[in-house]
Amino acid sequence: MSQGTQPYVALDRVAKVYPSPRGDVEALSDIDLEMAPGAFVSVVGPSGCGKSTLMKCLAGLVPITSGKIDINGHKLDGPPDAMGIVFQRDVLLDWRTILDNVLLQAELLRLPRADYRERAMQLLARFGLEGFEDRHPWELSGGMRQRAAICRALLCDPELLLMDEPFGALDAMTRDDLNVELTRIWQGSNKTVLFITHSIVESVYLSDRVVMMSRGPGRIVEVIDIDLPRPRPLAIRETPAFGAYVHQIRHHFAELGILKE
């Protein structure tokens, strides 16, 4: 983590309250978080801890109740520029080919499609989808679909990439593959990534920094810097240093009564 530089993302005492007939629901409480430019930050926590709400607030899709979010030095007011987003469901449009699905991002941003065609083809090739450009989503496996969704998010070269449990619905092997591919794409790209997951192992493997959240209300309980060398082969997960981080996080959740040890 670089010290002294301005953080790319800064959350200052952010709270989010959803009003409901049976009383207000505090989804996020007192969230302080800084993300350095180009950092890979994971948020890990149990279901209902507000991690998805946190991402929607950061995406400018949901207004925050109090506090302040700065992105690249600007106060957040609606969806920020140069942001890509990936959800747990790939939300590809069935009536479009894979290439047209990726190019949707340019269309939505009102950028000329023709300028991004070449880049879309390159991205698809880098994610092993060469030759599938003209296929439709239903012809592809879940892993391939999610790869296409990541290509869509990366099309217009975002500075900030938000990922909400993107591999949560995939089988373990596909998930490993995509973890490797994602770090490969991210490394040296200077993209700031916020990655939401409920897998501790995944969060340690991918991240520079793991943010632990707890529920009722959703709050940050611990931030752990992951000081492991990069690039990280999958086998790094079997090293003692890796195991120690996983143990530390699991132990902490156990102390909070969220995980049984």
Partner: peptide, 12 residues
């Protein structure tokens, strides 16, 4: 799918 609309809204 609400996330489909969210995707579009995120791109303004």
């Amino acid at each position: 799918d609400p996330d489909m609309v969210n995707l579009a809204r995120a791109a303004r």
